[in-house]
Design a protein around this nucleic acid. Structure first.
Length: 962
RNA sequence: GCCCUGGUGGUGGAAUUGGUAGACACGCAGGACUUAAAAUCCUGUGACCAUUGCGGUCGUGCGGGUUCAAGUCCCGCCCGGGGUACCA
């Protein structure tokens, strides 16, 4: 999966890092300790995971990364560290934890790089993966690397292709709300035609099929009988079936990106530009592969009720699916036998419809336009249809349209209504036509005002002389049989009458579109598809995987075919041409969590034993930028596999956490204009200055290392500084982390200086996991101090390991058990920052108590091991254990040690705390009240008055009301 | 526009169900140790007033409200971040 950060290629080798100095005290020798234990874990396969029915399973998943050339910066590992802590915690609590990692290895950047340099994308990808792996290994993650998957490996995409074939061979039965094999559909067609088949099907499919296949003769609404079906040719049958398949081909208006040379899915386009690269995107009619994800729209929506995702993410998915309830209504067109079908969510406002609007693409436009309006309409259509999507978006406020000269009739009372054509109505939503109710829709209102069309109020409550009244509340007026009803009742009543009168029906519309599944690119999964006399067939499952062929250049052919058309012998064994499109990036990431369950299986996607044991993902951590892409596709993919009986859970991810983005924190210096002199932040007002970004690695606590600055660039060698109190204070700005702003901090340098354990703790200490925050290296010193202080609990002044076997004191036990309780609670609610501070408090207390008791420290080491695994292993071993701490048991807290006999009650007067009063906890509220009123201090605050009321909350507070 | 979030010291943040606002850490100031530096340790650190001592007032974006008690709940605003849009 791709990360949203735009960091350029930035191998830091040879860069200048003045802050990395050798540590003068090496009492806690982290470089050696961390290296040693990382090697130990590899040698002993400490994190290897197998199915073990004797233990409960727990599946912790990270969104696998797209390995970009820039490597990891400090933002990437945030979620990985959190999931690692949680995995380790679960293991120590007796769970068999599946915690895998892999790489989303197909994608555009490696291919763009190939086009520029000729380097094979596989080579770039391999190199980048090696770099990611090296960086991840330094952090000390507990992944079972034996289960690694890469989407570009034939052994992996074998099953991506296999799933595609299954999708191709299934249709969606709306009656059972399930995918079923195409064979059942063929059987029904041959026995009873398609009349009673309630399937998710391409709208208006029969028109396209009839156009392409003149021998196809269905009725105007696409119905055929069994007899007709049995008489169809093979070609016709397959053309028809195509419109029912869950993976299907269709001619459709798609997002075409000329720069990238490929079509893009809706979630890969934002505001008319490609998300990746920011290239312009146009609408273009092309034959493409699609996934019929719309069949699952309702289930994708309903499933959100069952999963533990953040409300904002669920809301994003709900908006993306965009369910709206309403009605389709048929309006007869005056003086013709035609009807106009419109979709509205407000059938109650039908008596306020003063004009109708068709999208410029609507098929009726050409048929109903009256002769005297023809020229004007054609001119308008010419303009509107040639406006690009981007122009349309840029000029949303521009109101355009044209009267067709035709009228339709209100189906209830026969009132003639003029029909207009305007591009504010979209061809792709609903029926591409609306009834315009200017009084109660702001867009219709603006249009009516612009063209001086009548505005009729039908819902009271607003002031339609000023603006439209869009709210769904109020009482209906001027509306025949709806008069006097409130809006919600009126909607129901209108739909009932529409159904009864046979002039339409109540319907549900979704904004969700089927996913465009083909790309005209090289670096992706080949489709297991070939063409025999122009008819589409899938390969036999035995022929998988269909490997990506080698080609001579990563560009389209001279004739504009996709790059795979360059491959030699891109044909089946029988000589039929293979599909030249490849699958999109989300193909490989849609079902990867299932493959981790059984990654080396050569016979099937995953065994039923594996899926029955591992079931689903218990905790999934990743960025919320995947809300409308991967997370929807993946849920769809799983639901399909669930329908076919492969996946055992309807929803793949039980709980999802979105870690916050880490923003950059740039350092800025001020140059006095026209000089080589730089003025400290506090004095800059006295000069005319220009700000300049400097490498954040030369700045510590906003103080510039002026020596390093002079060496940074030759032109700065002679730089002069105007200091404040002998120091140069930098300014800062919160921006995107980017090489050009010199604010990229990568984990390698921090780990080199402070060690992986400090790095892990600091990333967690930064703040709540889900919150976006700027990266600020200031403060890591505090965590580093803490970890050394922790080390010193076990060591004497000469750094000799020394623990005592004496029995711990009450104070020591209380400190430990308070920490156990707090840290357990914090991990359970993924509040890692507060757990780190609990460790700090405990170590501060134990240092104060000069505690080096084995009984205390042993538990503390296990407690901290998920956060700082290297130092924990080392101390665990020093404590005399000869196996990994990974096999230890997480300590439980004993409430006995936390029992207090007295409590320091805050005594407040009228809600303001004035003093504290130590009282036994077993006192009754009445006794507490008496004690509080009798306290010397109380006399002063009572000012001789009698208290009106005294509130005592035992163990919490005393409040005296004067 | 609509939807979702968030707003607490100089800074990152804590306060889990309404019950001692500012835990923990950074930074800063002062001190100890040291020839010096690093490291370590100690003290102070929300603002304002008072300061010889006691102390007092204000304070969680703004304005109201509920409550014995509000960062937390309710109403109305303001600002930041994210998503989304001629979706009828």
């Amino acid at each position: 999966m791709d990360f949203p950060y735009s960091v350029d290629f930035s191998t830091f080798a040879g860069s200048f890092f003045p802050l990395i100095k050798p540590l003068t005290t090496m009492d806690y020798n982290f470089p050696e300790i961390e290296k040693k234990w990382q090697q130990f874990w590899v040698d002993h396969k400490t994190y290897k995971t197998e199915i073990d029915p004797s233990r409960p399973k727990y599946y912790v998943l990270d969104m696998f990364p797209y390995p970009s050339g820039a490597g990891l910066h400090v933002g990437h590992p945030l979620g990985y560290i959190a999931s690692d802590i949680y995995s380790r915690y679960k293991r120590l609590n007796g769970y068999n934890v599946l915690h895998p990692m892999g790489f989303d290895a197909y994608g555009l950047p490696a291919e763009q790089y190939a086009i520029q340099t000729g380097t094979h994308p596989a080579v770039t990808t391999e190199k980048n993966i090696a770099r990611y792996r090296e960086q991840m290994d330094q952090i000390g993650f507990s992944y079972d690397w034996d289960r690694q998957v890469r989407t570009c490996d034939p052994s992996y995409y074998h099953w991506t292709q296999w799933t595609f074939i299954q999708l191709f061979n299934h249709w969606y039965n709306r009656t059972t709300q399930k995918a079923e094999p195409v064979e059942t559909l063929i059987k029904r067609f041959s026995e009873a035609g398609n009349k009673d088949v309630n399937a998710a099907v391409t709208p208006e499919w029969h028109k396209e099929t009839a156009r392409k296949d003149p021998s196809f003769t269905a009725s105007p609404d696409g119905v055929f009988t069994a007899r007709e079906w049995n008489g169809f040719s093979e070609r016709t049958r397959r053309e028809i079936l195509m419109n029912y398949r869950l993976a299907y081909q269709s001619d459709a208006v798609v997002n075409w990106c000329g720069e990238l040379g490929t079509v893009l899915a809706n979630d890969e386009v934002a505001n008319g530009f490609s998300v990746r690269g920011g290239h312009p995107v146009e609408r273009k009619l092309m034959r493409q592969w699609f996934l019929r994800i719309t069949a699952y729209a309702q289930r994708l929506l309903d499933g959100l009720e069952k999963v533990d995702f953040s409300e904002s993410l669920k809301e994003m998915q709900r908006n993306w699916i965009g369910r709206s309830e309403g009605a389709e209504i048929l309006f007869p067109i005056k003086d013709t036998s035609l009807t106009l079908n419109i979709f509205t969510t407000r059938p109650d406002t039908i008596f306020g419809a003063t004009f109708m609007v068709l999208a410029p693409e609507h098929e009726l436009v050409g048929r109903i336009t009256s002769p005297d309006c023809k020229d004007a309409v054609e001119t308008y259509l010419h303009e509107a249809l040639n406006r690009s999507e981007r122009e349309r978006m840029a000029e949303v406020k521009k109101i355009t349209g044209e009267f067709t000269g035709a009228y339709c009739l209100n189906p209830f009372n026969g009132t003639p209504i003029p029909i207009w054509v305007a591009d504010y109505v979209l061809a792709g939503y609903g029926t591409g036509a609306i009834m315009a109710v200017p009084a109660h829709d702001s867009r219709d209102y603006d249009f009516a005002r612009h063209f001086s069309l009548p505005i009729v109020e039908v819902v009271s409550g607003g002031d339609i002389s000023r603006e439209s009244y869009d709210a769904k509340e109020g009482v209906l007026v001027n509306s025949d049989f709806l008069n006097g009803l409130d809006v919600k009742e009126a909607i129901k009543a209108a739909i009932r009458r529409i159904d009864e009168a046979g002039i339409g029906k109540g319907t549900v519309n979704y904004r969700l579109r089927d996913a465009i599944f083909s790309r005209q690119r090289y670096w992706g999964e080949p489709f297991p598809v070939y063409y025999k006399e122009g008819i589409v067939y899938t390969l036999d499952e035995k022929e998988l995987p269909l490997c990506l062929p080698e080609i001579d250049a990563y560009l389209p052919t001279e004739t504009g075919e996709p790059p795979l058309a360059r491959a030699k012998n891109w044909k089946t064994l029988e000589g039929y041409p293979l599909e030249t499109n490849t699958m999109p990036g989300f193909a490989g990431s849609s079902g990867y969590y299932l493959r981790y369950m059984d990654p080396h299986n050569n016979h099937e996607y995953f065994s039923s034993e594996a899926v029955n044991y591992w079931q689903d993902v218990d905790l999934y951590i990743g960025g919320d930028e995947h809300a409308t892409g991967h997370l929807i596709y993946s849920r769809f993919w799983n639901k399909f596999l669930y329908d076919t009986g492969l996946s055992v859970k309807d929803e793949p991810y039980k709980k999802l956490i979105n870690q916050g983005k880490i923003q950059g924190r740039s350092s800025i210096v001020y140059r006095v204009k026209g000089t080589n002199t730089f003025v400290s932040k506090g004095l800059k007002e006295q000069y005319e200055t220009l700000p300049m970004h400097v490498d954040v690695n030369m700045v510590s606590n906003d103080i510039l290392d002026t020596e390093a600055f002079r060496k940074w660039r030759p032109d700065l060698a002679g730089a002069e500084f105007i200091l404040e109190e002998g120091r140069y204070h930098c300014d800062y700005a919160l921006e995107k982390m980017s090489k050009s702003l010199y604010n990229v901090v990568n984990p390698d340098q921090l780990i080199e200086k402070y060690g992986a354990d400090t790095f892990r703790l600091y990333e967690m200490f930064l703040g709540p996991l889900e919150q976006s925050k700027p990266w600020d290296t200031n403060g890591i010193e505090g965590v580093f101090r803490f970890i050394r202080k922790f080390w010193r609990l076990f060591h004497d002044a000469e750094n000799h390991f020394r623990v005592s076997d004496e029995l711990p004191t009450t104070a020591e036990l209380r400190s430990l058990h308070r920490t156990i309780k707090k840290v357990r609670e914090d991990i359970e609610r993924l509040s890692f920052n507060t757990a780190v501070s609990a460790f700090m408090i405990c170590v501060n207390e134990l240092s104060e108590l000069k505690c080096n008791k084995r009984a205390i420290l042993t538990d503390l080491v296990v407690l901290i091991s998920p956060y700082a695994p290297h130092i924990a292993e080392e101390l665990w071993s020093l404590l005399g254990h000869d196996s990994s701490i990974n096999g230890a048991t997480y300590p439980s807290f004993n409430p006995e040690y936390l029992k207090e006999t007295t409590f320091g009650y805050p005594v407040s007067f009228n809600g303001k705390t004035r003093f504290k009063l130590e009282l036994p906890l077993k006192m009754t509220p009445a006794e507490v009240e008496t004690a509080a009123l009798n306290a010397d201090e109380s006399q002063k605050w009572l000012e001789g008055k009698k208290p009106r009321k005294v509130i005592v909350v035992p163990g919490k507070i005393i409040n005296i009301v004067r």
